[in-house]
Design a protein around this nucleic acid. Structure first.
Lengths: 338, 338
DNA sequence: ATGAAAGCGCTAACAA
DNA sequence: TTGTTAGCGCTTTCAT
C-alpha cells in the first residue's frame, strides 16, 4: 500500500502531528520552516498521498458535492453538470451525480443516498415546485442550491435563467413579425420553469392587447418531444387559425415540428415556432430553431460557486441568481402568411 | 448529529460489535435473530444511517467508482455515463465523474485525483491509443475498464461498439446504392475508434474492388463539427468526383453537411453522407442522417457490470466485449446522380 | 515549535 | 452467539 502520514513522519524524523501540520497549508505556519521542508521532502520521496477518507472521518467534511438531475443525458442538464464539476474541481471538490428521471420517489432515494454518503452539500436541478425533498433538506439544514428550478416558498439559494424575460423576448419577436394568434405549449406545472413561462405568456397577451381567445395555452405532461407533438395536435385541432407557437422548451418545439410535418404544414411559412433553451444541435434541425438561449453551463458553475461560498462561510445568506437569456433568431420564425 | 452505531448498540442493550454484525447483511448470520431484530428496531427508532466514511477507512473499499470521459456534454458520452451510473447504483456504488476535454494532461490529473479519492475502480472512456495512463493503472493493479475505446496492447477489460462491423454495413449500403467513389473522414489516429474505422474502410475498398485512388481518406483532428467541415473542404477540393462520404462519427458528418451546404451542394442528391454513433437528434437534422447506431447506454452499463464483477472477484480475467451495431438508413443517402 | 495522545465511526480478529 | 479490543489514517487539543 501507499505511504501513510506515519511513514512520512518517521522518514522525516518528526511525529505524526507535526507531519500533519507541515503538510496542511492552513497549519504549516505553526511549524518551523526547515522542519516543514524536511517533511515535504520526505512526503515527495515516499510519494505520499493523503487519505481523504481518514481526513473526512476526523473533519466531518468530505469535499464532495451531490448533484441531482432528472437525466444527465438531457442536453439541458449535461452542461449544468459540467459547469458544476468545473468549479467544484477547481475548489478541490468532487461531485457525485444522481439521476431521478423526474420521479419524486427516485429523487427522494437519491438524495437520501447522497446524504448517507456524507456529501457536504446538494445541488438540485430536479426540484419540483413545492418539493418535499427541498423542505426536508432545508429543515435538516443541509446546504442546498437549486439550479434551473426555483422554489419561492423555501429559503434556499437558487440560480436559474430569466424565464420571464425569455418569454417576453420571444413574444415580442413574434409580435413584431406580425403574429397576432400565438399559442403556447406550456411545460409541466410541477416545474417552476413551466409555470413561470406560462404565466409570463399569459401576461404578454394582455400586454400586447391580443385576444386571449386566439392565444391558447396547452400544457405538456413532460418536457419531451412526444408531448410537444401531442400538444400541437390538440392545439391545431381546436385553433386552426394559430400562426405561431411558442414552446416552453426546445424539445417541445421539436415535437411541434414533427406534428406540423405530419399535417403537411410548413414551418415557418404556415406556422412559426419558437423554442426555449437553445440546446446543442437545435441550430442543425430543419428549419434551424429560433429559440431563447440559456447559459446552462454558467448556471451550473454559478450554483457550484454559491454552494462553495456557503460551505466556506455558513453564515452567508441565501442568494437567488437570475441569469440573463437572449433570443436567437434562426429559421423557424417568419411573418405570418397573408 | 445523527446516531452512531454506538448509540444503537446502547439502545439495544448490546455491544457495538454485535450491533455491527446485526446490521450487516453478510454477518447477520452470526447473531441471534431476536437480538438482531432488537438491534434493527433500535436502529430504525434512532434513524441510524451508517457512516460509509468510517466503514471505508476500515475496509479499504469506498463503494465508489471513477468514470473519466472527454466531456460529459458530448452526446456520445452522456448515455455511457448514465449506463454506468444505473448499474453502479443498483450494486450500491456511486460514481465520481471527471472530464478531460481530451487533454492527456487533464486525463492524468483527473485519474490521479480519483485515485487519491480511493475509488475502487476506474472506468475510462477517454483512453487514447497507447495511453500511458492505462499502462500506469495496469501496473498499479487498479481495476480498470475501458469503454468506447479499446487498448489492444494492455491486458485491460473493455467494452466498445463493433467499429469494423459498422463501417462494413455503411460501406455496403453505399455500394448497394451504386456509389463507387466513396470518401472517408477518419477520426483522430490517437483514438482506437479512429484507427479501426479507417482501417476497415481501407479494407472494404479492396473487398468491393473499388479504385483506391477514387476513395480518399482524410483525417480529422478531433471528433468535432468544425473538423468535419474542414475535412470535407479538403476532400472536395482534391476529389470533386466523390459521390458519397462516410464519416467516422456523426459530428464529422454534421460538419460535412455544413460544408456541402456552403458549396451549394445538396445531400443526398449530390453527395450521400453516412455518420457513426446515431447520437440523439441526428434524426432531426436535415436531411435525417443515415448512420450506424451504437448502444452507448448499454456500453456504459456493461462496463460497469464488468467492473463490479471484477471487484467482487479479483481473480476474474480481463474481458473484452464488442457490442453489435446496426445501420439506420434515413435521408442522407441515395443513389449517386446519373 | 513540537510531542503525546485521544478519537472520528466502524469492522474484524480474538476471547469468552 | 456475544463481548472486547485494536486499529484504519488522519486532525487537533493539550502539554511541554
Amino acid at each position: 500500500m501507499s505511504a501513510t502520514l506515519r511513514d512520512v513522519a518517521r522518514a522525516a524524523g518528526v511525529h505524526v502531528g507535526t507531519a500533519s501540520r507541515a503538510l496542511n497549508p492552513e497549519t504549516v505556519g505553526m511549524v518551523n520552516s526547515v522542519t516543514a521542508k524536511r517533511v515535504r521532502d520526505a512526503a515527495d520521496r515516499l510519494g505520499y498521498v493523503p487519505n481523504p477518507i481518514a481526513r473526512s472521518l476526523k473533519t466531518n467534511r468530505t469535499l464532495t458535492l451531490g448533484a441531482v438531475v432528472p437525466d444527465i443525458t438531457n442536453p439541458v442538464f449535461a452542461p449544468i453538470i459540467r459547469g458544476i464539476e468545473d468549479v467544484a474541481a477547481a475548489a478541490g471538490y468532487n461531485v457525485l451525480i444522481a439521476n431521478t428521471d423526474d420521479e419524486p420517489r427516485r429523487e427522494q432515494e437519491q438524495v437520501a443516498s447522497l446524504r448517507a454518503r456524507q456529501v457536504d452539500g446538494l445541488i438540485l436541478a430536479s426540484a419540483r415546485l413545492d418539493d418535499p425533498v427541498v423542505s426536508a433538506l432545508s429543515a435538516a439544514e443541509v446546504p442546498t442550491v437549486l439550479v434551473n428550478r426555483v422554489e419561492p416558498e423555501h429559503p434556499v439559494s437558487s440560480v436559474a435563467g430569466d424565464d420571464a424575460g425569455g418569454i417576453r423576448q420571444g413574444f415580442r419577436h413574434l409580435y413584431d413579425l406580425g403574429h397576432r394568434r400565438i399559442a403556447h405549449i406550456a411545460g409541466p406545472s410541477s416545474t417552476s420553469t413551466g409555470v413561470t413561462r406560462r404565466r409570463t405568456f399569459r401576461l404578454e397577451i394582455g400586454e400586447f392587447g391580443l385576444n386571449p381567445a386566439q392565444c391558447p395555452v396547452v400544457e405538456a405532461e413532460a418536457y419531451r418531444v412526444e408531448a410537444g407533438s401531442e400538444c400541437t395536435a390538440t392545439l391545431l385541432d381546436a385553433h386552426p387559425g394559430v400562426t405561431a407557437v411558442m414552446a416552453a422548451n426546445d424539445l417541445l418545439a421539436i415535437g411541434c415540428y414533427e406534428e406540423l410535418a405530419g399535417r403537411g404544414l410548413s414551418c415557418p411559412a404556415d406556422i412559426s415556432v419558437v423554442g426555449f433553451n437553445d440546446m446543442p444541435f437545435v441550430d442543425k434541425v430543419w428549419p434551424p430553431l429560433t429559440t431563447i438561449h440559456v447559459r446552462h453551463y454558467d448556471a451550473g458553475a454559478e450554483a457550484a460557486r454559491l454552494m462553495i461560498d456557503r460551505l466556506r462561510d455558513p453564515s452567508l445568506p441565501c442568494k437567488s441568481v437570475l441569469l440573463p437569456v437572449s433570443l436567437v433568431v434562426r429559421g423557424s420564425t417568419a411573418p405570418p402568411a397573408a
